[in-house]
Design a protein around this nucleic acid. Structure first.
Lengths: 100, 100
DNA sequence: AGGTTAGTTAGGATCATGGCTAACCATTCA
DNA sequence: TGAATGGTTAGCCATGATCCTAACTAACCT
């Protein structure tokens, strides 16, 4: 649940590796190894991205045997959509005030 | 217009100072000085944030006399909304596939 | 002209990010 | 039991982000 900041969320999405992970997990859970496969990168480096996203509340992970399974935290991105929508509304309101 | 990357856009919004600038500009244009006022920060530091956002296509600026006026680039954030929406849809589609 | 205002340029300090290798642990399988 | 697999920890390094001060330029005001 945790109150994850927009800072953390936006920063997490600023990295293409991490967005790719989200794009993959949106289609269902996967183990670290599988997630890492397309990402020409050493496992420890990759794991850091996983940790960033877990810390940011974007994904959740748990150990199953020797694998670590990862899944989306589906509500995590809502604050971002909210903020963007808020800006859009403010902008449009401001447009409509521009009379004569 | 430019094809600004999600990388750049998300990264730009990862900083609270820059989000505050956007929040302010959503209500109408402003000069650098005015934007900087609430941000206990030296002007050169602040200017860098302005440059980051201009480079990212989020705002546009032009000199007017000795001031530099800044305004929103209203379509800049659309790719972000698009990406977020895309993820949401992928997630929901995946949910519905979970039968029996 | 001289001073004030707004911005700009240059250069430096500090810290976080994102990558690596090497070595280790825990689980599974033959 | 021993080897392979999947992950983890530790430590290193290069780069870039974010802040600063000092000094300069360009407009505007009296």
């Amino acid at each position: 649940m945790a109150n994850h900041s927009l800072d953390t969320l936006f920063a997490a999405l600023g990295d293409p590796t991490r967005r790719a992970i989200i794009e993959r997990l949106a289609h269902g859970p996967a183990a670290v190894k599988e997630l890492a496969a397309p990402h020409d990168m050493a496992l420890p480096s990759f794991l850091q991205h996983i940790k960033v996203m877990e810390a940011g509340g974007i994904i959740a992970t748990r150990k199953e045997g020797r694998q670590r399974m990862c899944r989306m935290e589906p509500n995590a991105l809502i604050p971002l959509q909210g903020w963007l929508e808020w800006q859009r509304l403010a902008w449009e309101a401001q447009i409509h005030q521009q009379k004569d």
